[in-house]
Amino acid sequence: MHRVAVLKFPGTNGDYDVLRALGLAGLRGELVWHRDYKSGLYDAVILPGGFSYGDYLRAGAVAAQTPAVEHVRRDAERGVPVLGICNGFQILTEAGLLPGALAPNEPPGFISKWIRVRINDVKTPFTHLYEPGEVVYMPIAHAEGRYVPSGSYSAAAKYVESPNGSFDDVAGVARSNVLGLMPHPERAVDRDVSRGGTGGLKLWLSLKEWLKR
């Protein structure tokens, strides 16, 4: 059985949602408290959404400075698939594991909305089962999701209609085995609670297939 870590910081709140989504794809996630996270133990790691350390500073900025994220960096360099969702994405950019930054929305304010997202990069461990350009419905729920690039980047996913002023409608960014997404794929896996299909499920199935390789 593969070991998939679901990394939890103080203020992480999407941890159980990710565990449930992994379960639906037939993977067993392990909830790992940030102080307990060590590199070399896991086959994949997910940084769920939430408000790590309350996001009282810039979103993700404090968590990015923790030893856990250093261990994630080491794992990422060894090729371990790493996914940051929402606040997890913010942590990955703050830590420099992904390029660019996530700035306050334009117009400003927290926004909760189901939205169409186009999957552009289908070579990542989390997206290889999608068709290139496939459009999926996922919810966003963030106040700081406006992507601002610095240098080159690979737009793994784009909004069909940008809700937050993101540069070039970027919704997600990939760097080889590391993926960051502002939309929530773990919230689009169950027909009963999804507003538009279960398009998030393929992401978790992609990871499962990838780990079999």
Partner: peptide
């Protein structure tokens, strides 16, 4: 008003704000 609230966290909200007369929560 409700677009400011993360009404989906927990992934239980089967009938969301504005969609019906009452909210419905799935107990997985």
């Amino acid at each position: 008003i409700y677009m400011r609230f993360d009404f989906d966290v927990g992934v239980r909200t089967a009938v969301k704000p504005g969609e019906g007369g009452a909210a419905v929560l799935k107990l997985y």
